[in-house]
Design a protein around this nucleic acid. Sequence first.
DNA 1: CCACTCCTTCTACAAATGTAGAAAGCGATA
DNA 2: TATCGCTTTCTACATTTGTAGAAGGAGTGG
Lengths: 208, 208
Amino acid sequence: MPTDRLAALTDAAIDVLAELGMRGLTHRAVDARAGLPQGTTSAYFRTRKTLIEAVVHRLADLDRADLQANRLPAGADSPAVGMDDIDAVAADIAAVLDRWISTARNRTLARYACLLEATHHPELQTILAHGDASRTQARLMLAAAGARHPEQAGNHLVACIDGLLFDRLAGAGARTAPPAGTAANRADLATAVATLLRAFAGTGPKGQ
Amino acid sequence: MPTDRLAALTDAAIDVLAELGMRGLTHRAVDARAGLPQGTTSAYFRTRKTLIEAVVHRLADLDRADLQANRLPAGADSPAVGMDDIDAVAADIAAVLDRWISTARNRTLARYACLLEATHHPELQTILAHGDASRTQARLMLAAAGARHPEQAGNHLVACIDGLLFDRLAGAGARTAPPAGTAANRADLATAVATLLRAFAGTGPKGQ
DNA sequence: CCACTCCTTCTACAAATGTAGAAAGCGATA
DNA sequence: TATCGCTTTCTACATTTGTAGAAGGAGTGG
């Protein structure tokens, strides 16, 4: 059954992509990273294109599973969401973000590499998965909180949260912000996210 | 005088980087893109590393010049900034962002490619330039507006604005948002940026 | 035991790439 | 004009990479 082998190869490819960049993603590098004999990747993914597509699909799957497991806490998208909940929701989101730059760092890096690649290879845009699910959730939540234009606000909100993520992953925040994986980082992210939630929900600020 | 030739090559390299990605950035590809005889890039940048470094420096320079030319309007960082100004400031920022995804798209794409590359090649992190200058400006502005933690808020603000940028460049916003270069896009960005400014300045929202 | 089928591993090879050095052009100065 | 120093162009070559196919097992049914 080649399915575990395929998964091993694809995961190795994600690591290679994260650590060596799109340029370093070669059949042989994946073999080495997976600890499998040379030629293995080439046998399973006859062309480089199929290898990249496999990576994209796996990333999409992982993200889907991740978001599924990390539903916002009960009621976050119900009309009864109040100001107190917002801090809780923000903390949850911050926890996810922090994991994405610490534990799941490689996956996140690989995703950004693929997003950039999708710019000149439109067929890769399956990676919408992440963005789309988040957007729906954001839209529902903001609508429930009484935002005036939940669709637009949701899009802006998700884009901004992704900005916080990328900043800590590859931007200046990677140097200036508290180290990934620490409570301080989660706290810092949580205040930012809370500010965003309040702002895009259209309710007053609580001070930062 | 090789300086214009160097500039031509580096600019061509930026275009190649934007259009073909890090993988497509080869000496020969740059030659072709610049319309110069094969071997030219190899003569000026003996190794690929120097070529990339040249690209990074050029991007940093261009960004510096851009930010210099696009200082926030008079008084934006003076204590007298009021709520009315915020919309004007937001519109200005939105205009810059819109240009970065329409006219200057290649430059922006190349910058993100380099940022990702800097993740595994720390010596490339000269690209701070953009982030740092923006951060300083943001911090000053927020401090003047009376934000409680201007440093932290400034960092968050810049990260979020970059998130809006990346979203339209390579994220879902590239498909869902109004087309780059249009007034509609600038307007959409402006409302998002205004919301952010108000939120991180700690002043009440005006509704989105 | 054999034949057949799959999965795995190895090998081959053309194309592309990084890099260095040779050749060629060209302006200035004696 | 001959020579020198420079920039530009061309050529060569070892590596790396993508891709295909051959060789080698290992299990299964006859």
